[in-house]
């Protein structure tokens, strides 16, 4: 029987630094909640809004798969692998930080905010070679259906990370239904509603709610309830 962990949007930690307004599903930086450490290998789910002209200065990361999904505005990325990129909504950024990376992420606009989901997944193995990837999604691929945006395989749809994880994104209209089938039997699924509302496996989720489902035995049913409803599904291993 499936086991559910519901994270209502209002229960997320909230940090307002002025330049950064962040809602954090799991314990991050100075916020510590022993009941909100991780869901399986999903360790960070930050919902960040960065003020114009501001951003994260150069800082390091290692041994973490970092996925950034821009929701609004444009980010400027620089790293010590030589990448200088711009990232906007409709694209996905992957940093496999492995044995170590230094990077910065700034709002490329001085006037408009940039919004993104910052997601960290524990890697399958430690100390891998650092890697940067950025992809542009086909906008028609997620209309009223789920679009795979990452997998463990370089030759599969979307980007790839060094973990047995599959992420899907979908934009739906009221009454649309679909289902999700795990790629790997013992994996869990974390559903995060970006906009609108959905029922996921019988659980009602409103905007920015998250639902972790473990011990899944069959397909997961989804139904959208509002116009332009968007959901992110993250299938991840449950053990680090």
């Amino acid at each position: 029987m499936a086991h559910y962990t519901l994270h209502k949007a209002a229960t997320r930690a909230h940090l307002d630094h002025g330049w950064l307004n962040s809602y954090q599903t799991f314990s991050f930086a100075g916020q510590y909640n022993p009941d909100r450490i991780r869901f399986g290998t999903l360790r960070v789910l930050n919902d960040d809004v960065i003020a114009g002209g501001r951003g994260f200065g150069e800082h390091p990361h290692d041994n973490m798969e970092i996925i950034s999904i821009p929701l609004a505005g444009t980010l400027e990325h620089k790293d010590n692998m030589g990448n200088v990129k711009r990232l906007k909504a409709g694209e996905v950024q992957i940093m496999s930080t492995g044995e170590g990376v230094f990077h910065s992420e700034f709002n490329a606009s001085n006037d408009e905010v940039a919004a993104l989901l910052q997601i960290w997944v524990f890697p399958k193995t430690l100390n891998g070679k650092p890697r940067y990837e950025q992809i542009t999604l086909d906008p028609s691929g997620s209309q009223r259906k789920l679009q795979q945006i990452l997998s463990p395989f370089p030759d599969d749809d979307g980007a790839w990370i060094q973990q047995d994880a599959w992420f899907h994104l979908g934009h739906f209209e009221p009454g649309d239904t679909t289902h999700y089938t795990l790629h790997k039997k013992d994996n869990g699924l974390y559903a995060f509603v970006i906009s609108g509302s959905f029922t996921v496996d019988g659980q009602l989720l409103e905007v920015r709610d998250g639902l972790g489902i473990a011990e899944i035995s069959g397909d997961i049913a989804l139904q959208a309830h509002t116009p332009a409803a968007t959901i992110l599904l993250m299938e991840i291993p449950m053990d680090i």
Partner: peptide
């Protein structure tokens, strides 16, 4: 313990988790 992340993101909660 293993430290993940290489920066400020997880360091504090890792240490506080170990203390607890």
């Amino acid at each position: 313990a293993q430290h993940y992340g290489g920066g400020s993101g997880l360091l504090e909660s890792e240490v506080r988790g170990l203390l607890a």
